[in-house]
Design a protein around this nucleic acid. Structure first.
Lengths: 160, 160
DNA sequence: ATGTATGGTTGCGGTCTGCAAGCACTCCCC
DNA sequence: GGGGAGTGCTTGCAGACCGCAACCATACAT
């Protein structure tokens, strides 16, 4: 019994409130970039930048959404020139998605806007607290992913 | 210059990733309650429970969304019996929204489901880390609210 | 009384999401 | 080698939210 219910519930409440607040900011930051990425673009371009060329299904698994969503977003990003696609030489069904130069530039612009916002929001934070929060958030996100099974395992509509 | 860019950007990335993960969990937890609240219901019922009877516009301000959204959600929650409405005795235009007994019960059920999930997700967290994260999150949410002006102040579509 | 401001509702369009059906291709077993 | 099962992806569909703008009813100020 490592955690008191009080602390746990307070953390849950803080998370719920924070997710709401964070959603606003994350969509706004992307939208304010001209020729802006669709707000979800960030979530797709980031793993593309970090892990390089990869296929839709990998991207879907990494971002935790349905493949169909990724498929549509990739199509949109491709139309806008942010990503490029080529057939997978090892598998005729799949294609490999790669960040284009324009996409990298858009990502950099979005990142700059975010940094600006973050600087304002974090004006009176000190190094220690920020570092600590970053670590704890990363850990919590990982634990949430682990505790929240893939969508297929939760019968969404079929509540008993 | 209280914060290094490296720490700041890492925190930004952690927040972005976390918001994505958290959104999944928060919607799922509400949906899994039978006769479930619409996932946004939680966001409305919570301030109703905490601050008591209040009007739509107050609710909208508190939750940070447009009044029209609150209006529709209240209508839905009223149909489901989760909230009750009565005309404001002091102002014929307004109505006061109040959590019903059924709504309180639904809220309790949702909370129970959340606690269950949280217990699983936080299985190997210790008291100190959880408490610290809760505090830091609350502080960050407040700072984000402060740094991200109300929607009316950001011309959404009118990007230059 | 008349004009303005405010609380709320509704129509509209947009984004993001998941599910399910369908297509093309791969792989394995007979 | 051929046929069936499995896989990668796309698309049609429906649902949840969101904000803006137009609108109505009431309140308030001059």
């Amino acid at each position: 019994m490592p955690l008191s219910p009080g602390t746990r519930d307070r953390l849950v409440a803080a998370v719920a409130q924070f997710v709401r607040a964070g959603r606003h900011v994350s969509t706004r930051a992307a939208e304010s970039v001209h020729g802006g990425l669709p707000s979800f673009g960030w979530g797709l371009l980031l793993p593309l930048e970090r892990d390089g060329e990869q296929r839709c299904s990998t991207l879907a698994a990494r971002t935790g959404v349905d493949v169909s969503v990724v498929s549509r977003q990739v199509a949109a990003l491709e139309r806008q020139g942010h990503v490029e696609r080529r057939p997978d030489p090892d598998d005729g069904r799949a294609s490999l998605i790669r960040l284009s130069e324009a996409g990298a530039a858009a990502l950099a612009r979005t990142r700059a806007v975010r940094s600006e916002w973050a600087t304002a929001a974090l004006a009176d934070w000190d190094e220690e607290d920020a570092r600590r929060l970053g670590e704890l958030l990363e850990r919590l996100a990982a634990d949430l992913d682990r505790a929240a099974p893939a969508t297929s395992q939760i019968p969404l509509g079929a509540a008993s």
